[in-house]
Design a protein around this nucleic acid. Structure first.
Length: 555
RNA sequence: GCGCCCAUAGCUCAGUUGGAUAGAGCACCAGACUACGAAUCUGGGGGUCAGAGGUUCGAAUCCUCUUGGGCGCGCCA
């Protein structure tokens, strides 16, 4: 809808220029928006205001020129007004809006999909939790955001890959192995000391039990250094299996699991460091090797290889991002916990050091989640091992509610997750509110069927019977759906979908309450209204699907 | 100390990328089932958009400063 009108205005500008009425030395950007106030029409543009200075004419005068040059061949514009300082307000013909319903009916679940991505490859890397313990709610939020964003990008035509980066090299895995080894010895009656920074969680003892079952007491009394690898591998595999299970239960699936260790095994860390040297973005100093990240705006340069010859975390990250770039992605998106924000400049420096534009990597930060129970925050401490796991939450409130609630805030903003509200079946719980709208429509169709009324075919529908204000509102919301998808995808803001859904669901509830869909006295109207309901149901379903939330027929 | 993010109704948050009279939900008050699902709906009050300057036709939105919060600043990961 916006696009069509933009083209019409574009044509009008061109015509005005040919007549000499406008100079158009610089091409103005035509933005159309849906005014908040209904008195300002269906769509409004501010071009006349933005052009005023360059043209040296008062904006209202420019607006007049534009309007005079508009040729509306398809006949979609009902009225144009100049308002205020120079807004041009368009009222579209009712019929134009209503035809959206036919489009939805034709396209079904395809409605709203676009191809702005043109099949280009993008990657979303998210969760990427250390395989040293269960996923907690923060990971859950990252998973919900990443998965929804990936869905959105796919919906606008990108070829999306979802990737999980496994931090299976380095200190954490060693600590995991040590912790596991200690618990194992304790199970066998050896009172060995537990590593100081070890993982204290209950789950380690459980894994130790599994280890005992698998290997018996073969490693009893064996010093850790002689068997660190087997404990590390066992622990890592057990944790990864748990992570996969939890993600599965949360309806998140990855296309690719990428191992950090593999970067060391195939020498790509070495090779990337070599390449950095050749490109002149690393240097040696104080016995260490440094990345010249200040060349790209970082506060200070960063160590890649330590004095003792070990790689830093950044070293594998350099190799990892080089690997990502080599896979031909047009755009990389990393979803990180907000506490890692200080890391962004150096990774963007890496990207640039390899000759790619800074913005080929976009880091989306996800803020903290606090869990509330009975209105009180549940204390969480990673050190003490008392964090609320994703599994707990999913078992408690269900995957749908959890996913939806994780997406009810901008990812940038901290989130209070109230377990009681998430279970509540009321207006306060947004996921029920939206799902109920869908179930309600399903119920109407069940009722219609019981009365022998079939789901209407478009040929049988008289759209002009949909003339109530509530019906107009709904139709306009449905027409705005494709633009919402595109904006949410391109701005990496999946939360817009939840707001849209709540809006649409609200309109549906209002309409439902005020008017009867099935009217035994008026068959034609019943058919038209059922047709409208069918399209609302389709859009609710597709939007929920983008969020990875189910659209139930009954609740 | 330096850097990043943030400050919008009593509370939790949106705000169409600089547009017209700043919006929802909760809470509070008053109402609606002989009804296709009341898990719903209708109405009401409630604001110096933290503060002060600036940019311009126009600012919650952009710039500077101040105040108040969160996070990050290791040859840890």
């Amino acid at each position: 809808m916006k696009q069509t009108l933009t083209d019409i205005i574009q044509e009008a500008l061109k015509r005005a220029q040919q007549q000499g009425a406008l100079k158009l030395e610089t091409q103005p950007v035509i933005t159309l928006e849906i005014p908040k106030d209904k008195n300002h029409g269906d769509l409004a543009t501010t071009v006349a205001l933005t052009m005023a200075k360059a043209e040296g004419k008062p904006p209202r005068k420019i607006a007049e020129i534009i309007i005079a040059n508009i040729q509306d061949e398809e006949g979609i514009i009902g009225r144009t007004d100049i308002a205020g300082p120079g807004f041009i307000n368009f009222v579209l013909k009712q019929d134009r809006w209503r035809r959206t319903l036919f489009a939805i009916d034709d396209q079904g679940q395809e409605y709203g999909l676009k191809d702005v991505g043109r099949g280009e490859k993008v990657q979303v890397e998210f969760v990427s939790a250390n395989p040293t313990g269960p996923l907690h709610v923060g990971h859950g939020r990252g998973a919900a955001v990443g998965d929804a964003l990936a869905n959105l990008l796919a919906a606008v035509g990108y070829d999306v890959q979802r990737e999980f980066y496994i931090n299976d090299a380095g200190r954490q895995v060693r600590l995991l192995a040590q912790s596991l080894h200690a618990r194992y010895q304790q199970l066998l009656g050896n009172n060995v000391p537990f590593p100081e920074d070890g993982y204290h969680g209950e789950y380690i003892a459980e894994v130790a039990q599994e280890f005992l079952k698998a290997h018996g007491n073969v490693y009893r009394d064996k010093p850790f250094e002689e068997c660190s690898e087997i404990f590390g591998d066992f622990g890592k595999e057990a944790m990864l299996a748990d992570i996969r299970t939890d993600l599965e239960a949360f309806n998140v699936r990855f296309d690719h699991w990428f191992s950090e260790k593999s970067l060391l095994a195939d020498n790509s860390v070495q090779r990337s460091i070599e390449e950095l040297k050749q490109r002149g973005f690393s240097y040696e100093q104080d016995g260490a090797l440094w990345l010249k990240s200040t060349a790209f705006g970082d506060d200070k340069d960063r160590v890649i290889v330590k004095k003792d010859g070990d790689y830093t975390y950044l070293a594998t990250d350099i190799a990892y991002h080089r690997n990502k770039l080599s896979r031909g992605f047009r755009q990389l998106v990393n979803i990180w916990g907000a506490d890692h924000h200080g890391y962004i400049p150096r990774v963007q420096a890496v990207i640039q050091a390899f000759g790619h534009p800074k913005d080929s990597l976009h880091v989306l930060l996800v803020q903290l989640v606090s869990i509330l129970r009975h209105g009180q925050p549940v204390p969480m401490s990673k050190r003490a091992g008392t964090f609320v796991t994703l599994r707990d939450v999913v078992q408690d409130v269900g995957a749908d509610a959890a996913r939806y609630i994780f997406l009810t805030r901008r990812s940038d903003s901290p989130l209070d997750f109230d377990l009681d509200i998430a279970k509540e079946q009321s207006r306060e719980n947004p996921v029920y509110y939206v799902q109920y709208a869908h179930a309600r429509i399903a119920s109407i169709f069940r009722e219609a069927e019981a009365r022998g009324i079939a789901v209407p075919k478009r040929e049988a529908v008289q759209l002009d019977l949909l003339d109530l204000a509530e019906e107009q509102n709904i139709i306009k919301a449905l027409a705005a759906y494709p633009e919402m998808i595109e904006e949410a995808a391109l701005s990496y803001e999946p939360h817009r979908v939840t707001y849209y859904l709540q809006d649409l669901a609200g309109m549906l509830h209002t309409y439902y309450f005020k008017h009867r869909i099935i009217d035994a006295e008026n068959e034609a109207r019943t058919v038209a209204r059922l047709f409208l309901m069918k399209q609302v149901k389709t859009v609710l379903q597709s939007a929920l699907k983008l969020l990875g939330v189910s659209a139930p027929e009954k609740m």
